[in-house]
Amino acid sequence: MTEPVEFTLDGRPLSAVAGQSVAAALIDAGVRSWRTTRLRGRPRGVFCGIGVCFDCLITADGRTGVRACLLPVAEGMTLVSETSDSETSDSGAGGDD
């Protein structure tokens, strides 16, 4: 077995298995939602699990709007939930029309 990976979510220390995605690490830690929606403030976690739906967006080491289901968890990683009042992202060029 490899050494556990230590990381934090909103300052709370958690640990994961090396090689896991951030989403998997959070679910294993009992966290099922880490974002609230812009309009209704509803909780969201992982839905599609493969990078298609963008429900699982999280701020990782200062980078906003990262898909937690695709990002590998890393030692010392600082994760911050994206709540409706904190959500700021420069990655807004995806919308069509």
């Binding site: 679910i27 099922r32 992982v46 839905f47 699990g49 493969i50």
Partner: peptide, 14 residues
Amino acid sequence: DLPGVMAAGGVQAL
């Protein structure tokens, strides 16, 4: 849209 509802493929991917 509640947490805990997932695509079947996502459950398998996890």
